[in-house]
Protein backbone atom coordinates (compact mmCIF):
# COMPACT_ATOMS: atom_id res chain seq x y z
CA UNK A 1 0.00 0.00 0.00
CA UNK A 2 1.06 3.59 -0.53
CA UNK A 3 2.19 5.44 2.55
CA UNK A 4 2.94 9.02 3.48
CA UNK A 5 6.38 9.28 5.01
CA UNK A 6 6.39 13.00 5.71
CA UNK A 7 5.86 16.55 4.63
CA UNK A 8 8.02 19.51 3.65
CA UNK A 9 7.12 23.19 3.43
CA UNK A 10 8.69 25.83 1.23
CA UNK A 11 8.10 29.32 -0.03
CA UNK A 12 7.46 29.40 -3.78
CA UNK A 13 8.19 33.03 -4.64
CA UNK A 14 9.35 33.77 -8.21
CA UNK A 15 12.62 35.28 -6.97
CA UNK A 16 13.69 31.82 -5.76
CA UNK A 17 13.52 30.51 -9.32
CA UNK A 18 15.40 33.55 -10.60
CA UNK A 19 18.13 33.13 -7.99
CA UNK A 20 18.61 29.48 -8.93
CA UNK A 21 18.51 30.19 -12.67
CA UNK A 22 21.03 33.03 -12.32
CA UNK A 23 23.31 31.08 -9.98
CA UNK A 24 22.93 33.54 -7.11
CA UNK A 25 22.22 31.07 -4.31
CA UNK A 26 25.58 31.69 -2.61
CA UNK A 27 25.40 35.47 -2.91
CA UNK A 28 25.21 37.16 0.52
CA UNK A 29 21.53 38.10 0.09
CA UNK A 30 20.48 34.52 -0.70
CA UNK A 31 23.02 32.38 1.15
CA UNK A 32 21.28 31.94 4.47
CA UNK A 33 17.93 31.31 2.79
CA UNK A 34 19.27 28.56 0.52
CA UNK A 35 21.75 27.05 3.01
CA UNK A 36 18.79 26.35 5.26
CA UNK A 37 17.40 24.02 2.60
CA UNK A 38 20.39 21.64 2.83
CA UNK A 39 18.97 19.42 5.62
CA UNK A 40 15.63 19.19 3.79
CA UNK A 41 17.40 18.21 0.58
CA UNK A 42 19.44 15.61 2.48
CA UNK A 43 16.27 14.17 4.04
CA UNK A 44 14.67 13.80 0.58
CA UNK A 45 17.89 12.19 -0.73
CA UNK A 46 17.81 9.70 2.09
CA UNK A 47 14.08 8.91 1.99
CA UNK A 48 13.82 8.94 -1.81
CA UNK A 49 10.03 9.27 -2.02
CA UNK A 50 8.47 7.81 -5.17
CA UNK A 51 5.85 10.52 -5.42
CA UNK A 52 5.61 14.10 -4.19
CA UNK A 53 2.17 15.70 -3.98
CA UNK A 54 2.73 19.45 -4.31
CA UNK A 55 0.08 21.65 -2.70
CA UNK A 56 0.34 25.09 -4.31
CA UNK A 57 -1.67 27.86 -5.87
CA UNK A 58 -1.68 28.87 -9.49
CA UNK A 59 -0.95 32.57 -10.08
CA UNK A 60 -2.62 32.97 -13.45
CA UNK A 61 -0.87 30.47 -15.70
CA UNK A 62 -3.27 27.52 -15.76
CA UNK A 63 -6.38 29.12 -14.31
CA UNK A 64 -7.84 32.40 -15.47
CA UNK A 65 -10.70 33.98 -13.54
CA UNK A 66 -13.29 32.53 -15.92
CA UNK A 67 -13.17 29.26 -14.00
CA UNK A 68 -11.60 29.13 -10.56
CA UNK A 69 -11.75 25.79 -8.77
CA UNK A 70 -11.26 25.93 -5.01
CA UNK A 71 -9.34 22.64 -5.08
CA UNK A 72 -7.98 21.09 -8.28
CA UNK A 73 -5.96 17.91 -8.78
CA UNK A 74 -3.67 17.14 -11.69
CA UNK A 75 -4.72 13.80 -13.21
CA UNK A 76 -2.19 13.50 -16.02
CA UNK A 77 1.06 11.71 -16.79
CA UNK A 78 2.89 14.95 -17.68
CA UNK A 79 2.74 18.55 -16.45
CA UNK A 80 4.27 21.42 -18.35
CA UNK A 81 5.69 24.67 -17.04
CA UNK A 82 5.25 27.66 -19.37
CA UNK A 83 5.88 31.36 -19.97
CA UNK A 84 4.25 33.31 -17.13
CA UNK A 85 4.68 36.67 -18.79
CA UNK A 86 8.08 37.72 -17.50
CA UNK A 87 10.06 35.69 -20.02
CA UNK A 88 11.60 33.19 -17.61
CA UNK A 89 12.75 30.09 -19.43
CA UNK A 90 10.31 27.25 -18.66
CA UNK A 91 11.80 24.20 -16.95
CA UNK A 92 11.56 20.60 -18.17
CA UNK A 93 8.16 18.86 -17.95
CA UNK A 94 7.25 16.92 -14.82
CA UNK A 95 6.25 13.27 -14.76
CA UNK A 96 2.88 12.51 -13.17
CA UNK A 97 1.01 9.32 -12.30
CA UNK A 98 -2.50 9.54 -13.74
CA UNK A 99 -3.79 6.29 -12.20
CA UNK A 100 -2.69 7.36 -8.72
CA UNK A 101 -4.23 10.82 -9.23
CA UNK A 102 -7.56 9.36 -10.30
CA UNK A 103 -7.57 7.12 -7.24
CA UNK A 104 -6.97 10.18 -5.06
CA UNK A 105 -9.77 12.07 -6.84
CA UNK A 106 -12.20 9.18 -6.34
CA UNK A 107 -11.34 8.87 -2.68
CA UNK A 108 -11.58 12.62 -2.05
CA UNK A 109 -15.01 12.86 -3.68
CA UNK A 110 -16.09 9.83 -1.67
CA UNK A 111 -15.01 11.79 1.42
CA UNK A 112 -17.07 14.79 0.28
CA UNK A 113 -14.21 16.85 -1.17
CA UNK A 114 -15.64 17.48 -4.63
CA UNK A 115 -12.35 18.26 -6.29
CA UNK A 116 -11.85 19.50 -9.85
CA UNK A 117 -9.90 16.98 -11.96
CA UNK A 118 -7.45 18.33 -14.57
CA UNK A 119 -6.09 16.20 -17.42
CA UNK A 120 -4.16 19.15 -18.75
CA UNK A 121 -2.60 21.40 -16.16
CA UNK A 122 0.21 23.87 -16.62
CA UNK A 123 2.25 24.27 -13.46
CA UNK A 124 3.63 27.70 -12.56
CA UNK A 125 6.33 28.95 -10.19
CA UNK A 126 4.17 28.00 -7.21
CA UNK A 127 4.73 24.34 -8.09
CA UNK A 128 8.12 24.57 -9.78
CA UNK A 129 10.17 26.63 -7.33
CA UNK A 130 9.80 24.41 -4.26
CA UNK A 131 10.85 21.42 -6.37
CA UNK A 132 13.86 23.32 -7.72
CA UNK A 133 14.81 24.48 -4.23
CA UNK A 134 14.51 20.97 -2.79
CA UNK A 135 15.79 18.82 -5.65
CA UNK A 136 17.86 21.19 -7.80
CA UNK A 137 17.07 21.77 -11.46
CA UNK A 138 16.98 18.78 -13.80
CA UNK A 139 16.27 17.92 -17.42
CA UNK A 140 14.61 14.78 -16.13
CA UNK A 141 13.15 15.35 -12.68
CA UNK A 142 14.14 12.70 -10.13
CA UNK A 143 10.65 12.22 -8.67
CA UNK A 144 7.08 11.73 -9.84
CA UNK A 145 4.83 14.64 -8.94
CA UNK A 146 1.12 15.31 -8.51
CA UNK A 147 -0.09 18.93 -8.41
CA UNK A 148 -2.86 19.84 -5.99
CA UNK A 149 -3.92 23.45 -6.56
CA UNK A 150 -5.71 25.49 -3.91
CA UNK A 151 -7.34 28.79 -4.83
CA UNK A 152 -5.67 31.46 -2.72
CA UNK A 153 -5.94 34.11 -5.44
CA UNK A 154 -9.60 35.03 -5.76
CA UNK A 155 -11.76 35.16 -2.65
CA UNK A 156 -13.67 33.29 -1.39
CA UNK A 157 -10.72 31.00 -0.68
CA UNK A 158 -11.08 27.95 1.57
CA UNK A 159 -10.59 28.33 5.31
CA UNK A 160 -7.61 27.04 7.25
CA UNK A 161 -9.93 24.51 8.87
CA UNK A 162 -11.09 23.23 5.49
CA UNK A 163 -7.51 22.88 4.29
CA UNK A 164 -6.60 20.83 7.34
CA UNK A 165 -9.63 18.60 6.66
CA UNK A 166 -8.58 18.21 3.03
CA UNK A 167 -5.20 17.02 4.23
CA UNK A 168 -6.82 14.37 6.42
CA UNK A 169 -8.89 13.17 3.46
CA UNK A 170 -5.75 13.17 1.31
CA UNK A 171 -4.08 10.85 3.80
CA UNK A 172 -7.00 8.41 3.59
CA UNK A 173 -6.85 8.67 -0.21
CA UNK A 174 -3.12 7.96 -0.43
CA UNK A 175 -3.11 5.18 2.15
CA UNK A 176 -5.90 3.30 0.35
CA UNK A 177 -3.90 3.08 -2.90
CA UNK A 178 -2.71 -0.48 -3.54
CA UNK A 179 0.71 0.28 -5.07
CA UNK A 180 3.73 0.30 -2.74
CA UNK A 181 4.68 3.94 -3.06
CA UNK A 182 6.37 6.24 -0.57
CA UNK A 183 4.77 9.65 -0.71
CA UNK A 184 5.84 13.05 0.59
CA UNK A 185 3.54 16.09 0.65
CA UNK A 186 4.92 19.58 -0.08
CA UNK A 187 2.99 22.46 1.45
CA UNK A 188 4.09 25.58 -0.40
CA UNK A 189 3.70 29.35 -0.27
CA UNK A 190 3.71 31.82 2.56
CA UNK A 191 4.66 32.84 5.05
CA UNK A 192 3.60 36.44 5.79
CA UNK A 193 3.75 38.84 2.85
CA UNK A 194 1.70 41.46 1.13
CA UNK A 195 2.55 42.60 -2.38
CA UNK A 196 -0.37 44.93 -2.99
CA UNK A 197 -1.65 48.27 -1.75
CA UNK A 198 -0.14 50.81 0.60
CA UNK A 199 0.44 48.02 3.14
CA UNK A 200 2.82 46.23 0.71
CA UNK A 201 6.01 45.01 2.36
CA UNK A 202 4.31 43.67 5.47
CA UNK A 203 6.16 40.82 7.20
CA UNK A 204 5.21 39.60 10.67
CA UNK A 205 8.09 37.48 11.96
CA UNK A 206 6.42 36.60 15.27
CA UNK A 207 3.24 35.38 13.56
CA UNK A 208 5.31 33.37 11.08
CA UNK A 209 7.27 31.64 13.84
CA UNK A 210 4.11 30.92 15.80
CA UNK A 211 2.56 29.43 12.63
CA UNK A 212 5.62 27.23 12.00
CA UNK A 213 5.66 25.88 15.54
CA UNK A 214 1.90 25.37 15.73
CA UNK A 215 1.65 23.78 12.30
CA UNK A 216 4.31 21.30 13.38
CA UNK A 217 2.88 20.48 16.80
CA UNK A 218 -0.65 21.85 17.13
CA UNK A 219 -2.13 22.50 13.68
CA UNK A 220 -5.69 22.85 15.04
CA UNK A 221 -4.51 26.20 16.47
CA UNK A 222 -4.57 27.68 12.96
CA UNK A 223 -8.21 26.74 12.47
CA UNK A 224 -9.37 29.34 14.99
CA UNK A 225 -8.58 32.08 12.46
CA UNK A 226 -10.85 33.34 9.72
CA UNK A 227 -9.19 34.23 6.44
CA UNK A 228 -9.74 37.91 7.28
CA UNK A 229 -7.80 37.44 10.51
CA UNK A 230 -4.97 35.64 8.74
CA UNK A 231 -4.74 38.39 6.11
CA UNK A 232 -4.77 41.07 8.78
CA UNK A 233 -1.73 39.47 10.44
CA UNK A 234 0.10 37.82 7.55
CA UNK A 235 -0.92 40.00 4.59
CA UNK A 236 -3.15 39.29 1.64
CA UNK A 237 -0.61 37.02 -0.03
CA UNK A 238 0.28 35.47 3.34
CA UNK A 239 -3.06 33.68 3.11
CA UNK A 240 -1.05 31.05 1.18
CA UNK A 241 0.00 29.68 4.56
CA UNK A 242 -3.32 27.78 4.66
CA UNK A 243 -1.79 25.40 2.11
CA UNK A 244 0.69 24.20 4.73
CA UNK A 245 -2.33 22.83 6.57
CA UNK A 246 -3.22 20.52 3.68
CA UNK A 247 0.25 19.01 4.05
CA UNK A 248 -0.05 18.87 7.82
CA UNK A 249 -3.49 17.27 7.78
CA UNK A 250 -2.09 14.45 5.65
CA UNK A 251 0.42 13.51 8.38
CA UNK A 252 -0.06 11.78 11.73
CA UNK A 253 -1.17 13.93 14.64
CA UNK A 254 2.23 13.58 16.27
CA UNK A 255 5.20 13.95 13.97
CA UNK A 256 8.95 14.16 14.27
CA UNK A 257 10.25 17.66 13.47
CA UNK A 258 13.35 16.85 11.42
CA UNK A 259 14.19 20.40 10.35
CA UNK A 260 12.98 23.92 10.98
CA UNK A 261 14.36 26.89 9.03
CA UNK A 262 13.10 30.44 8.87
CA UNK A 263 14.42 33.41 6.97
CA UNK A 264 13.14 36.96 6.51
CA UNK A 265 13.03 38.92 4.40
CA UNK A 266 13.55 37.09 1.15
CA UNK A 267 12.18 39.19 -1.66
CA UNK A 268 8.99 40.46 0.05
CA UNK A 269 8.32 37.49 2.33
CA UNK A 270 9.02 35.59 5.47
CA UNK A 271 10.03 32.09 4.34
CA UNK A 272 9.84 28.86 6.29
CA UNK A 273 11.06 25.32 5.71
CA UNK A 274 9.68 22.51 7.82
CA UNK A 275 10.54 18.84 7.43
CA UNK A 276 8.05 16.72 9.32
CA UNK A 277 8.31 12.93 9.43
CA UNK A 278 5.65 10.39 10.27
CA UNK A 279 6.57 7.84 12.93
CA UNK A 280 6.43 4.41 11.27
Amino acid sequence: MAKIIGGVTSSHIPAVGNAIANNLTQEPYWKRFFDGYAPAKAWLQEKKPDVVIVVYNDHGLNFFLDKMPTFALGCADTYHNDDEGWALKPVAPFKGDAAFSWHIAESLVEQKFDICTCQEMKVDHGFVNPIRALYGTHDVWPVTTIPLAVNTVQHPVPTAARCLELGKALRTAVESYPADLNVVIFGTGGLSHQLQGERAGLIDVEFDLECMERIANDPEWMTQFSNSEIMRRAGTEGIETIMWLVMRGALQSNVKVVHKHYHAPISNTGAGVLVLENYL
Binding site: Q196, G197, S226, N227, S228, M231
Partner: peptide, 14 residues
Protein backbone atom coordinates in the same frame (compact mmCIF):
# COMPACT_ATOMS: atom_id res chain seq x y z
CA UNK B 1 -16.69 41.72 4.41
CA UNK B 2 -14.63 42.36 7.51
CA UNK B 3 -11.43 42.35 5.41
CA UNK B 4 -12.56 45.56 3.71
CA UNK B 5 -11.33 47.67 6.64
CA UNK B 6 -7.75 46.36 6.56
CA UNK B 7 -5.83 49.57 5.75
CA UNK B 8 -3.99 49.88 2.43
CA UNK B 9 -5.34 46.55 1.28
CA UNK B 10 -7.56 45.56 -1.64
CA UNK B 11 -8.63 41.97 -1.17
CA UNK B 12 -9.25 40.43 -4.56
CA UNK B 13 -12.76 39.04 -4.31
CA UNK B 14 -15.80 38.55 -6.52
Amino acid sequence: HDYENIPGTYVFDG
